[in-house]
Design a protein around this nucleic acid. Structure first.
Length: 876
RNA sequence: GGACGCUUAGCUCAGCUGGGAGAGCAACGGCCUUACAAGCCGUGGGUCGCAGGUUCGAUCCCUGCAGCGUCCACCA
């Protein structure tokens, strides 16, 4: 096996076959009848129209780390995948496709159009789920769900029915909604993005009734003057006090409207007079309510000026109408200043066209009562939000929540299960399609044409995917889910709404933990977007560096609460790490014989005990890091341990035993290396599943790593050997340092003189002399003996070394080196000396801190003495 | 306007409940040492944004300021 492995890793050679193997053996399957404790995650369902981007990649990587980790910790893990039907987005995609054929959805009609969407879905949709496999995602694919599936639709129906009959869903035309004239539908407040636009602020003069003067208002939307029903001024504004109660005349259409006083007017902005258009502005709508103003709609669903105002305006697009209206005012001498104005404009999240506020008949969810419980659940700790700082944002939004407009005037989605009676007007809301009005019994009923907001079905995801409204075994075992992993950008859209629905319909929160990760940005911190051309494609990264390297990089970059600036070059470093693992495995496989010898506690060398202890500590740290969602900490621990500790030190140390040793010494070196390799593979498996599985199989001959035991329970009790080797390493570093500074040929053998009064240390060195000799290339070690005069010196903790350089010694260089060391020692000497003289410090600081500082001081003092001695010898 | 976050080595960032700052990359010097040059050994580099305060002691806690960023609300 080992000989077949090449020295450069090629992930393409094994990643897909390893994944195929997992699938074949059905290793991702979750069994609700299992005796093991359950652990569950539902995937944030990507849009059916979606392609894998960095956000998904991060999201999936984290979830997979959790899922694989929990399997290794003995849980029955359900990671449930699926997709969202993404109403508006998907409809837009299919409509664009139709447009290429010169058709609109209306040419097809509703039924045929929906059929067309399903066809589209079958052909193009869901590619993203396949892409997730390239990442190594261990989802239970057989359970994949789609929000428009029969079962999920049933859940939607059940929930709608219940909420309606409890009065928590209602229909009303008494609110202002956000209307997209392009998508031709209402939008919820959340689906409106505010974008900066360059516009103009127009001053328009409205003649005052019965006087010669004007009231000059300032507006960015002259075309809506057709719907004006008042002009408002601030009640305290003395400039206009006399006008309050008078009327002004709207030019051209000659409508008489009152001047009213309202606090919302800013006296500083514009002219201090505001036109009020209750039908087409959120604020104006509120003003209209306060003052009982008429609501006159002047722009229709398509954004065109409605008839009945002025024939020359009728049918104009609202943007066109703006120019025409302004021109008209100019002609009449009623146009004042026109100044450029940069301001925020509400735009459709899906198509970016400017949203038209309108009053129209829509369906709403009364969210307050649901939100209160969702807030309470977080306050009581039933659901934890991680990082905690997001809790505030969550509370803030929940406490100021407005009713949720859930009806959409599109075709693709869950059609609202309400039937209007043509006879008596009653609305029948039923779980199964009714054939007559439940009130008057008339068969002349027709179903609501609107569909539900996509997020309505998404909000049921944690339980609709598990079989709700049936009481399934899956729900019993896996609800509430253990963790939800998602970006903070959909905290309101999704997380908050799932909280409300989960509590309402399942009687318990939908998840115990919510882990909100950062956004992935490009290397300059810019949001990735197609238009900026700075999108990094995860699949290309995987192809280039392998999924393991890519995942590991993402995990390292994920610090809680900070955006990730992704520089693709950095992934290369982790590709190198995977390569390192690969080569370490090759090395161990080559040197261990046919199969790894068993670890024999009684015959371990100190370095074996040392590495086992380091392994033990690393696994514990990684384990608790993952438990605490500190994925970057776990990743760095593993990186440091495997590369620096295991490869650079341990494997180098045991080469002597592997190559030239015999018997137990050789055997146990191989046994320890193989043992540590195996456990490291398990410890790293959640992060880098492919290479670890691949190596594990080659190493152990066992079938899969996936259901191994995480090595955080190791307990060897080898602390003494650990510190002995740590000491030896300090000694070796000191020798290497001198070698480097003197530019001594790496191959040259040196003699080493050690002096120390610490017998423990000396005995550690004695025991580790073989290691020291090999690692530092030392031919002979003299203990507490006088060294020749022309020696380089080095001072360690509690010991001093000298290396005879036989003429090679450069006094100046040596002095410079010692002076540098002296400076460091002097700094410590002064600092800690000062501290220890401070009476208040001695009184107030904890004893162990003082003790530690005293020790550091003593060491600094001893070092300083030794260095001074060395320096004075040099001067002679 | 409201809220939150960030500012640490040339770059990208760690630094968990306060006890004298770390990693990776880059740079520099030296190595083809038979697992790995995608490697090995060594070195340099930081007034922890600025100013105060609390404390025996502050990168860490508090206040103010500056710069950057995000979210919410949106002044017509």
């Amino acid at each position: 096996m080992a000989k077949e492995l090449s020295s450069r890793i090629n992930p393409a050679e094994y990643e897909s076959s390893v994944y195929e193997f997992w699938l074949e053996k059905n290793l991702f399957h979750a069994d609700e009848k299992s005796e093991k404790p359950g652990y569950s995650i539902v995937i944030p369902p990507p849009n059916v129209t979606g392609v894998l981007h960095m956000g998904h990649a991060l999201d999936e990587t984290i979830q997979d780390i959790l899922a694989r980790f929990k399997r290794l910790k003995g849980f029955e893990v359900l990671w449930l995948p699926g997709m969202d039907h993404a109403g508006i987005a998907t409809q837009n995609v299919v409509e664009k496709q139709l447009a290429k054929e010169g058709k609109t959805r209306h040419d097809l009609g509703r039924e045929a159009f929906i059929e067309r969407v399903w066809e589209w879905k079958a052909k193009y949709g869901g590619g993203i789920l396949k892409q997730l496999r390239a990442l190594g995602s261990s989802c239970d694919w057989e359970r994949a769900r789609f929000t428009m599936d029969e079962g999920l639709s049933k859940a939607v129906r059940e929930v709608f029915y219940t909420l309606y009959h409890e009065g928590l869903i209602y229909r009303s035309n008494n609110y202002m909604v956000n209307w997209c004239v392009r998508c031709h539908t209402a939008l919820s407040d959340l689906e409106v993005d505010f974008q900066e636009r360059d516009d103009f602020l127009y001053h328009l003069r409205y003649p005052i009734e019965g006087e010669d003067g004007f009231v000059t208002i300032a507006t960015t939307r002259p075309e809506t003057y057709l719907g004006d029903t008042a002009v408002a001024v601030h009640p305290g504004d003395e400039r206009f006090a006399r006008l309050i109660g008078k009327n002004v005349i709207l030019p051209v259409i000659n409508r008489k409207i009152p001047v009213i006083a309202d606090e919302f007017v800013e006296t500083e902005f514009g002219t201090g007079c505001v036109k009020i258009t209750p039908a087409h502005d959120h604020n104006d709508f509120e003003v209209g309510r306060r003052h009982n103003l008429e609501t006159i709609t002047c722009i229709d669903d398509n954004g065109l000026i409605m008839p009945g105002f002025c024939d020359s305006f009728t049918g104009l697009d609202r943007n066109e109408a703006r120019k025409v209206v302004v021109e008209k005012f100019r002609e009449l001498g009623l146009l004042g200043e026109v100044t450029p104005l940069r301001h925020n404009v509400g735009c459709c999240q899906r198509c970016s066209s400017v949203v038209e506020p309108m009053v129209s008949m829509q369906w709403f969810v009364k969210v307050k009562p649901l939100a209160e419980k969702a807030v309470q659940a977080v306050r009581e700790g039933k659901t934890r939000i991680i990082p905690k700082t997001w809790e505030n944002t969550y509370f803030e939004w929940m406490n100021n929540i407005r009713d949720w407009c859930i009806s959409r005037q599109i075709w693709w989605g869950h059609r609202i299960p309400a039937w209007y009676c043509d006879k008596c007007g009653h609305i029948t809301v039923a779980k199964t399609d009714p054939d007559k009005c439940e009130k008057c019994g008339s068969a002349e009923i027709h179903q609501e044409t609107d569909v539900l907001d996509t997020w309505f079905s998404s909000s049921l995801w944690p339980f609709s995917t598990m079989g709700y409204p049936e009481k399934t075994e899956t729900l019993k075992k896996f609800y509430p889910t253990s963790a939800l992993v998602t970006g903070f950008d959909i905290l309101f859209f999704w997380v908050a709404r799932m909280m409300m629905m989960g509590i309402k319909f399942m009687g318990d929160v939908p998840f115990r933990d919510v882990y909100l990760h950062a956004l992935v940005r490009d290397e300059h911190g810019q949001k990735m977007s197609k238009s900026k051309g700075n999108v990094i494609d995860p699949l290309i990264m995987i192809e280039k560096y392998g999924a393991d390297a890519f995942r590991f990089a993402l995990a390292v970059f994920t610090a809680q609460g900070r955006d990730i600036k992704l520089n693709p070059d950095r992934i290369e470093g982790y590709r190198n790490f995977i390569n390192k693992i690969w080569n370490a495995a090759r090395f161990i496989l080559m040197n261990m014989g046919d199969s790894a010898p068993a670890l024999d506690r009684e015959n371990l060398a100190d370095e074996d005990k040392w590495i086992l202890t380091k392994l033990e500590k690393t696994a514990k740290k990684v384990s608790s890091s993952i438990e605490g969602y500190a994925f970057n900490e776990g990743a760095s621990e593993l990186y440091q341990f495997f590369w620096m500790t295991f490869c650079d030190w341990y494997l180098e140390i045991i080469k002597e035993r592997l190559f030239k040793g015999e018997g137990k010494s050789k055997e146990q070196a191989a046994a320890t290396a193989a043992f540590v390799l195996e456990k490291s593979m398990i410890a790293m498996h959640p992060y880098i599943p492919f290479v670890t599985e691949h190596i594990y199989k080659a190493l152990t001959g066992r079938e899969t790593i996936m259901y191994e035991t995480y090595p955080d329970g190791l307990d060897f009790g080898f602390e003494q050997a650990e510190s002995a080797i740590d000491n030896a390493i300090e000694l070796i570093n000191l020798v290497r340092n001198i070698r480097g500074e003197y530019n001594i040929a790496p191959g040259a053998w040196l003699e080493l003189y050690i002096t120390s009064s610490d017998s423990g240390k000396l005995s550690d060195f004695e025991k580790a002399s073989g290691i020291v000799k090999k690692a530092a290339r030392v031919s002979e070690i003299h203990v507490n003996a006088a060294a020749p005069e022309d020696s380089a010196s080095g001072v360690g903790t509690g010991f001093e070394i000298k290396i005879p350089l036989a003429g090679a010694i450069d006094t100046e260089e040596e002095r410079a080196r010692l002076e540098k060391e002296k400076k460091a020692a002097e700094k410590d000497f002064a600092l800690y000396g000062g501290k220890l003289k401070n009476q208040r410090y001695l009184e107030k600081a904890p004893a162990e801190v003082v003790e530690k500082d005293r020790k550091t001081f003593e060491e600094a003092k001893a070092k300083l003495e030794k260095i001074n001695e060395a320096l004075s010898r040099l001067r002679k």
